[in-house]
Design a protein around this nucleic acid. Structure first.
Length: 580
DNA sequence: GCCGTTTTCGGCCCGACTGTTTTCAGTCG
């Protein structure tokens, strides 16, 4: 933050205000379309990579889909006064905890409102007591069943918070294993992932699988009888939900083959994508459901076995699942202007990995062998500088030289080079923890913040990029999903400085990092910056994490050209900053 | 409150499930 310039409200906090305003208006029984307009605006704000407060001050927030004159003015109110005036007013009218009632299973705004206004209950504690004393049944449209659900939900800790989301990196392998097992069953025809896992979101909640089968019931039976299933939560003839030992819930839906395309499209989402697709379809005289597309005038229905044909019929190119977030993909698909997204197979090397020379779990030879087996042409060993003091850096260097020589002399081996990389710390005072002299001996230098995350993170990163030896900044925001909130780094300034200095930024593929985020990576792409997708792997198995990084990059609309390490090492050497 | 290949006014995604209101509103994804 620059002295004298007040800090603008962050997008997520702005979005929260609009969501809360929508909740409170809904509880008061306000106009549903206005409420939904606020929610749409909140989603748009949350998914905008640059500061929406700044855009509003510049009069440009109106250009965002779903934000008009009135909402732009309300954003300016937040900048000026800290809160939307209408929100301040409604907070005085609606008791604070009533809005959390809506998040209990089975309760929506209407019932929450009646609990508050007809029964005078205003806190979760009072609601719990009333439910346990059976004082709710018979009132406010609540019967014994709903009352029991309320009591059970409130007995659980954090009942009024949303359900937890699991990391994609831990969930995807399990989900794929289930898909594979189902594919092998004789009754199955098509089996696919759906939901947020298919879209490669960094975290997932619903584990959805869609299938077609010659005998739906047989496939559902088989699914329910898999040996890791500890509980069958629901089971019908075409659909079941099972729970595994770690508490993951898997949904299988077996659908008719003739509408497999429609259903896969529907269950892949996102919700915002589907709503926008359907609104657009309505304007063109179609009605889209999960089963078919209906021509409103004639009533003629069209169902499709292939997802591509659903999009094509509606006038779009097929949209890769990673883009389906209502972030401009529909307009681009209509114009035939979707980017050709980067693919896992485009990566030619990994530029951030570790070995037992620092905190890695597998030795250098094994990491290198694994990289060769993946078909890489180069591979940077970036052990932590602080673990390579004294003679150790020289010793590691000798080992790399020897191994490179061995690989080169092997006539059966494809061209491959181990790069002498290093990961240096950006200290709290902004200096690097390695001398320029040592840095000059390395092929590739990653600089990262590993301590005092909240201490001037932006200035520290900007300073590190000034070094002629720093090629790439590691995990820019230092977040750990679900564990550590991102440092308050001004990513827009970091991107600007990266372009100015010729420094690259990484998409770190560790499942709990995925840092840069998809939004930041998209902003970087739009600014014209190339990004590195690397594993930050500390063991052989972790080299596979780049698939998650590629997913993140695809969600950020990155093409092969936008990713530095789709190039040869020679090309990278030409593109990077010149050393002093 | 937003938006526009009919529209600056009059619309605003769609269907399934649930529980309870005996005919459907509310909730969910």
């Amino acid at each position: 933050m620059i002295a004298g310039v007040p800090e603008l409200p962050r997008n997520d906090l702005l979005a929260e205000q609009f969501d809360l305003l929508a909740d409170l208006m809904e509880l008061e029984g306000g106009d549903g379309f206005r409420i939904s307009a606020y929610r749409k605006a909140a989603a748009r704000i949350r998914e905008t990579p640059s500061s929406v407060a700044q855009l509003a001050l510049d009069g440009k927030a109106k250009q965002l889909q779903g934000i008009g004159k009135t909402i732009e003015a309300k954003i300016v109110e937040v900048v000026d006064e800290g809160e939307i005036r209408a929100l301040t007013k409604r907070k005085a009218e609606v008791p604070a905890e009533v809005a959390t009632f809506m998040r209990l299973p089975g309760l929506g705004p209407k019932t929450a409102r009646r609990i508050w206004q007809e029964l005078g209950i205003t806190t979760a504690a009072d609601l719990k007591a009333a439910a346990e004393a059976q004082g709710l049944r018979g009132h406010a449209g609540i019967g014994a069943g709903t009352e029991e659900k309320i009591a059970a939900a409130l007995a659980r800790p954090k009942a009024t918070e949303g359900p937890r989301r699991a990391l994609l990196g831990t969930t995807l392998p399990k989900l794929r294993a289930v898909v594979e097992v189902l594919r092998e069953h004789p009754a199955s025809v098509e089996v696919s992932l759906a939901g947020s896992a298919r879209r490669m979101r960094e975290t997932v909640r619903d584990l959805d699988i869609i299938a077609t089968a010659t005998d739906a019931e047989a496939l559902v039976d088989y699914f329910c009888s898999l040996r890791w299933v500890v509980d069958v939560a629901a089971r019908g003839s075409t659909k079941a939900t099972v729970v595994s030992h770690d508490g993951s819930r898997f949904d299988l839906r077996v659908v008719p083959p003739e509408s497999y395309g429609n259903l896969l499209q529907h269950f892949t989402g996102s919700k915002h994508h589907n709503v926008a697709l359907r609104e657009d379809a309505v304007r063109r005289g179609f009605s889209v459901s999960e089963y078919s597309v209906t021509e409103v005038e004639s009533g003629e229905e069209h169902s499709f076995a292939r997802e591509e044909d659903v999009y094509r019929f509606l006038g779009y190119d097929w949209i890769p699942p990673e883009l389906r977030e209502n972030g401009g993909e529909l307009a681009a698909a209509r114009k035939g202007a979707l980017p050709a997204l980067v693919e896992l197979g485009d990566l030619r090397g990994d530029l951030h990995t570790h070995t037992t020379w620092s905190d890695g779990k597998d030795p250098l030879e094994e990491m290198v062998a694994s990289a060769q087996a993946r078909g890489y042409a180069y591979y940077a060993i970036c052990d932590h500088a602080q673990r390579l003091r004294g003679d150790l850096l020289g010793q590691q260097s000798e080992q790399i030289d020897a191994l490179n020589e061995l690989i080169t002399s092997d006539k059966n081996s494809a061209p491959f080079r181990i790069l002498k990389g290093i990961e240096v710390n950006i200290r709290p005072d902004g200096t690097l923890d390695v001398s320029e002299e040592d840095l000059a001996t390395r092929d590739w230098v990653v600089a990262s913040v590993h301590s005092r995350f909240d201490h001037n993170p932006t200035e520290r990163v900007l300073g590190a990029m000034e070094s002629p030896y720093v090629d790439c900044i590691g995990h820019v925001t230092n977040r750990k999903i679900g564990k550590r909130t991102p440092s308050p780094v001004d990513v827009e300034r970091v991107i600007e400085k990266a372009l100015e200095t010729g420094t690259f930024l990484e998409i770190n593929s560790q499942p709990d990092r995925l840092d840069l985020t998809d939004l930041h990576a998209r902003a970087a792409r739009e600014a014209g910056l190339k990004l590195v997708i690397d594993s930050d792997g500390h063991e052989v198995g972790a080299l596979d994490f780049v698939e998650l990084g590629v997913g993140q990059a695809r969600r950020a609309w990155l093409t092969k050209d936008d990713v530095l390490n789709t190039r040869t090492w020679k090309q990278i050497e030409k593109l990077r900053k010149k050393r002093a």
